[in-house]
Structures are given as structure tokens and as C-alpha cells.
Amino acid sequence: MSDDSELEAIRQRKMAELQKMAADKAAIASITQPVHLTDANFAGETAKYPIILVDFWAPWCGPCRMVAPVIDQLAKEYAGRVVFGKLNVDENPRVAGTFGVQSIPTMMIFKAGKAVDIIVGAMPKGAIEAKLKQQLSGSSIYG
């Protein structure tokens, strides 16, 4: 292979990577409400987004119902930078157990599928945002 053809192959690969990144960013920007997470899809969903905040909740939990509109609002405000997910702990005990969730609401922030921060209890919007901003400042992907 000549140097020119090697350079062209590298250029083509890099262009394909840039196009995929742009498509991924556009797909993430279109997510303006929390995604539904389950025991079955949790690993794949949390790994596919650069940053996702997962709300562990249950329908009977009063504090969870207080946090839900905040999560919905943040999902709209942070579209393109953070994806939000909701996992019903009653319907999905395996994931909740894996992460040791014993109190709800519990919110966990994942980066590339790895848990990096946790918020326990019904926190006000500003407290949740502070944690998100802390994680976003360390993320050059979509920050």
C-alpha cells in the first residue's frame, strides 16, 4: 500500500468516526424525557450514553413522586448533555439490589456505564443540578 492510499484510508476512518459522533450527539439531543429502564435493558442503556442519571423509584413512594417532575424538567433542560432514566425498583429488583439501593428515591449518575455519583433522598432541583454540573465539568464528550 502506498503512503497516499494509507492516508486516504485513515482519513476515511476518521470521517466515519466524526459522522458517528455527530449522529450520536443528535440522537442524545432528541431525548427530552426519561428513558424507561428495566433489569433487562439497564446495562445496555447506561453504557450507551456518555452521562445518564438514573432515578430509582417506586409508584407508592411519596418522595419519589415529588422528585419525578424535577427529573422530567431536567431531562428537557439537559437534553443533548445528560440522558435521564427511571427504574421502578419494585418491578426491577435485580438492578436495585446490584447497586445496593435500599432507600428511594436514589439517583445515580453513570458515565459510560460506570456509577460515578449517588444522590439519596428527595433533593431539590439545585442539588441535583450541582451534581450533574460537577460530572459535566469533567466530561469533554458532550459537556
Rank of each mutant, 00 (worst) to 15 (best):
A127S: 14
T46D: 07
K48W: 10
G85V: 11
I104E: 07
N92W: 12
F99V: 07
I104Q: 08
A16L: 14
D3Y: 08
R65I: 06
A9L: 10
M15Y: 05
P63K: 06
S103Y: 02
G121Q: 03
T32Q: 13
P50Q: 09
A96K: 10
A75L: 04
Q102H: 10
L37G: 00
A16P: 02
G97A: 13
V35N: 07
L18Q: 15
V83Q: 04
P34F: 02
K111T: 04
R81M: 05
Y49Q: 01
Q102F: 08
E45H: 03
L7A: 13
A43M: 06
G62Q: 12
K14F: 10
M21H: 03
W57R: 05
I118Y: 01
A122R: 00
A26Y: 05
R11N: 06
V70G: 06
L87H: 05
I28R: 09
G85M: 05
K14V: 13
A115V: 03
L132F: 11
N88E: 11
E77F: 02
A122I: 00
P63V: 00
I109H: 01
K48M: 12
V89Q: 11
A75K: 01
N88P: 08
F56L: 14
I71Y: 03
M123Q: 15
P50K: 08
P63Q: 04
A79R: 00
E6D: 13
G85S: 11
T106W: 08
P63W: 06
V89C: 07
K133A: 13
I128V: 15
G62P: 02
I119C: 06
G62F: 02
M15N: 13
L37D: 04
R81T: 04
A75M: 11
P105G: 12
V70Q: 13
E17R: 12
C64N: 08
A79F: 00
A47Y: 00
I118K: 11
D72P: 13
Q19H: 11
A22G: 07
I118D: 06
A127F: 12
F84E: 09
T106S: 14
P69L: 09
Y78F: 14
I52P: 08
D4R: 04
E8F: 02
T106L: 09
M1D: 15
S103W: 03
L87K: 08
G80Y: 00
F110S: 03
F99G: 04
D55C: 04
A127R: 15
C64V: 05
